[in-house]
Amino acid sequence: MKQSPSLKVILNGLWKDQPIFSMVLGICSSLAVSNKVENAIAMGAGVTFALIGTAVLIAALRKLIPGRVRMIAYMIIIATFVIVVDRVLKAMFPDISRAIGPYVGLIITNCILMGRAEAFYVSNGVGLSLLDAIFNGLGYTYTLVLVSVIRELLGFGTILGLQVMPLSFNKWVIMAMAPGAFFVVALFIWVTRTLAKMDPDKQGGGM
């Protein structure tokens, strides 16, 4: 079956090159903010927004940015959009902002943004880059939400703050803390890699 370029971009973003489990990119934030579903959604939305802004701007300016200083130019573009995300969160959702505050700033060093900029946006037009950004953002968001659903359900007995488990449920405190994040993400990586029969030596290319 022959795929059109845009369909390929969509499928890559959602499954084949899906950022977290298959490329192992952007792990820091996915581990740290996935203890509650609302944090995961906020983080996913923030990353998607920054990704879209970066994609459009870099794709539009790709012929003007000199190759030697492109890294720092990307950094400045990314940082600008992250400031916007940070301000919006602070103004509209102060509680979430308090919970994930410093991690929002770290979207700048989230390798998904830098990675996609270097791999895709420099060499593709605005339209295709926008599509790539949207679906990479969605791919990132849905994995983050999946991880956080498990962690919040077992760690707090709730989903989005609503009581789901019976009150007598013994909370798995460890799930809300750092080790739980490692175990759940490791499980997801195991499942997706086994399903996708991926080359075991393939690792995240970037930092």
């Binding site: 490692f182 490791a186 890699r193 075991p200």
Partner: peptide, 13 residues
């Protein structure tokens, strides 16, 4: 499927 990043995460946990 656990080789590489998977087992690193479990050990890190």
């Amino acid at each position: 499927g656990m080789k590489g990043p998977g087992i690193v995460m479990v050990s890190a946990g």
